[in-house]
């Protein structure tokens, strides 16, 4: 499955997924499920290598958020593109809990959802197409403005307009002086 990170295709995923009933490798970056994390917190926390976790989209991330910073990768799932729960999980992790690691979307990830995903805080996408980078570039340049603030740094239309109004106001004031 092609993996897109920061808009570029990544050759190999650094994280090795480990099934719940499989033994953990001695070393290396691993990706575990939320259930395994719940069961083996101590052991997993003792590892020195990067740690990733897959969260089910039914999880109330308020119950997990405080632990987010221990992870280098959090994978959120879209069982079907029309199931939008992970958008809220992503925003909460980024904006409420300040998570700064990789936030990856997996499952039914389609070109026409990439814009919303990126705005919600995802920076990595498992997307089943060879031209994923082109699709991504196209998707995130669809709109030049945004109406609402999220944690993505874009300035909302409301704030843009206020800035214009203030600038105009200052210019008028300067002209008057």
């Amino acid at each position: 499955m092609p993996l897109l990170k920061d808009g570029r295709l990544v050759g190999e995923d650094a994280f090795q997924p480990v099934a719940d009933d499989a033994a953990l490798p001695e070393s290396g970056a691993v990706l575990v499920t939320y259930a395994r994390w719940q069961a083996e917190k101590e052991q997993l926390s003792g590892r020195n290598d990067p740690l990733g976790i897959v969260l089910p989209n039914t999880l109330d991330v308020l119950d997990f958020g405080a632990e987010a910073e221990r992870f280098d990768l959090i994978v959120l799932t879209f069982p079907k593109f029309s199931d939008g729960r992970a958008y809220s999980q992503a925003r909460l992790l980024r904006e409420r809990f300040g998570y700064r690691g990789e936030l990856r979307a997996t499952g039914h990830v389609l070109q026409d959802q990439l814009w919303a995903m990126q705005r919600s805080g995802f920076d990595a996408f498992e997307i089943p197409r060879d031209d994923a980078a082109e699709a991504f570039a196209k998707a995130i340049s669809t709109f030049s403005h945004v109406y609402q603030p999220t944690g993505d740094g874009r300035v909302s239309a409301l704030k843009q307009r206020l800035a214009i109004q203030n600038k105009d106001g200052r210019r008028k004031q300067e002209a008057a002086e």
Partner: peptide, 13 residues
Amino acid sequence: RQWSTFHPEFSFL
């Protein structure tokens, strides 16, 4: 209207 238009979090309620 403006806040809800293309709201990224709430497009697949």
